[in-house]
Design a protein around this nucleic acid. Structure first.
Lengths: 217, 217
DNA sequence: CGCGCTTGTCTCCGCACGGTGACTGTTGGG
DNA sequence: CCCAACAGTCACCGTGCGGAGACAAGCGCG
C-alpha cells in the first residue's frame, strides 16, 4: 500500500517486502489485527476480509489457522481471559475494605475505569447487547467468566448486608456502568449527562459512589 | 415465498395480487415494514433491500418517497415522538407522589416496563451504543427528546434532595435500566442475574427500587 | 541433493448489497 | 377522448463480501 506510487516504475520496484515464513508470528499478527480492528471499528465491519487486510496477509491463512472467523473470535475470547489480570488490579490499593459497601464502591470504580480504557472489551459489550449469534455468545461467555472470577477473588470473605439481593443489585450496578461507558463512547453523553471531560466523569463517579453507598451503606 | 411450489405451474398461477395504486398506503406500508424490521431483526440487516422486501414493494419507492434509508430513518424518528404518548402513562396511576424518591421509583419502574415491551425502541437503544452515524444520531435525538419531555412533565414541582446531583444519578439509573433490558433481550440474563421469568424480573424490579430508595430516600 | 510438506499468494466464484435508469400500466383533468 | 402525471416494476451496474481451489516459494528431512 505504501508502495503504490512505485507501481508505475515496475522495473526497479520489486522489493516485495518478503513476508517471512513464520506461522506463529502470522497467527499472532492475525489475532492482534482482529483485536485492534474490533476495538477500533466495532463489530459492524468486522469480517474475514477486513481482518486479513489489517493483518497484511491473505484471508486464506485465517481459514487455515483459525478455521474462519468463528475460530478467530474464539481465540479472542480465550485471549480475553487475561483481561482481568492485565487491566484490573488484584489488590485493593492498600485500602482496608471493612464493609461490603467499601468493597462494592471500590469495585464499581475499578470496573468503570477498566472499561473506559479498554475499547476492545467495550466493543464486545456493545456486541453482546446487539446480537445473539454463536460468535457473540462465546465472547460473552469468556468475558463474564473472567469478570466473575475477578469479583469472586476480590470479594474475599465480605458478605452483603442481610435482606439485600446482592446479585440483583450488583447486576444493576454493573449494567449501569457498562451502559454509561458505552453511551459515552458512542455519543459522549448519556441521558442528558455529558460524559466528555474529566470533570464530567468525576460527577458520574460521584453519583455512582452515592448510589452504591445508598444501597449498601 | 409461500407460493414457491406454484412456480412450476405457471399457467394457472397468475393472480399477481395487483398492488393498488395508493401512495399514502404504500408510504405507510414502507414505514411499518421498516419499524417492524428494525424491531425484530435489529439494525444489523437493516437496509433498503430488506425493507423493500418486507414492505412488498420495490425499493425504488423508498427512494422516491423517503429519499432513501436516511429519510426513512428520519421518518421513524419523527414517528418515535409518539412513543411517550402511546407507551408510558402520563398520570401517576392514582398515586400521590409525595417525595422525589416516590417519583423516581415510579418513573424507573414505568421506564423499565415500557422498554421491556417496546422492541423497536430497545433496538434503537442498542443501535445508539453500537454506532455513531448520522442515522443513529437522528433517531437518538428523537428518542431522548421524547424521554426528556416525559420526565419534565412527570416531575411536576418535585425537586431532588439537596446535595444530590440528580442529573448524574438519574442518568446512571436510566442507563442501568436500559442495559438490563438490552442484556435480557439478547441473552436472557445480565451479569449473572437471570432475566427470563416473571419472577426474575420481580427480583430485578425490587433491586432497582431498593437502589432508588437508597439514593433518594 | 531432491522430494514433499508447509507457508503464503493469487484468482475466481456466487451472492447480496446500494443505487439508477428505463419501462409499464393506471388515473384523472383538459 | 387523449395525454400528462403518477404509482409501481424491472433489469442492470459496480462493489464488497465470504469462501474455495490452484499455484508459487521456502524449509526440512531422508
Amino acid at each position: 500500500m505504501l508502495n503504490d506510487p512505485m507501481v508505475l516504475t515496475p522495473i526497479v520496484a520489486a522489493e516485495p517486502e518478503k513476508r517471512i515464513r513464520d506461522r506463529s508470528a502470522t497467527e499472532k499478527a492475525i489475532l492482534n489485527a482482529a483485536k485492534a480492528l474490533l476495538a477500533e471499528e466495532g463489530f459492524q465491519n468486522f469480517g474475514i476480509n477486513a481482518v486479513a487486510r489489517r493483518a497484511g496477509c491473505d484471508k486464506q491463512l485465517i481459514y487455515r489457522y483459525y478455521g474462519g472467523l468463528n475460530g478467530l473470535v474464539e481465540a479472542i475470547g480465550a485471549d480475553l481471559g487475561t483481561w482481568v489480570k492485565d487491566r484490573i488490579p488484584e489488590d485493593t490499593g492498600g485500602m482496608f475494605l471493612l464493609t461490603y459497601g467499601d468493597l462494592m464502591e471500590r469495585l464499581s470504580l475499578l470496573f468503570l475505569e477498566a472499561l473506559r480504557d479498554d475499547p476492545l472489551v467495550l466493543r464486545i459489550v456493545a456486541w453482546e447487547v446487539s446480537e445473539n449469534t454463536e460468535q457473540v455468545r462465546r465472547l460473552s461467555e469468556a468475558r463474564s467468566k473472567a469478570l466473575g472470577l475477578w469479583l469472586e477473588r476480590m470479594r474475599g470473605s465480605l458478605t452483603p448486608p442481610k435482606g439485600v439481593d446482592a446479585i440483583a443489585v450488583n447486576a444493576i450496578l454493573f449494567a449501569a456502568i457498562q451502559h454509561i461507558v458505552l453511551s459515552a463512547s458512542a455519543a459522549e453523553q448519556c441521558a442528558g449527562l455529558a460524559l466528555k471531560t474529566a470533570k464530567d466523569w468525576e460527577k458520574a463517579a460521584t453519583a455512582l459512589k452515592r448510589i452504591v453507598r445508598g444501597v449498601y451503606g
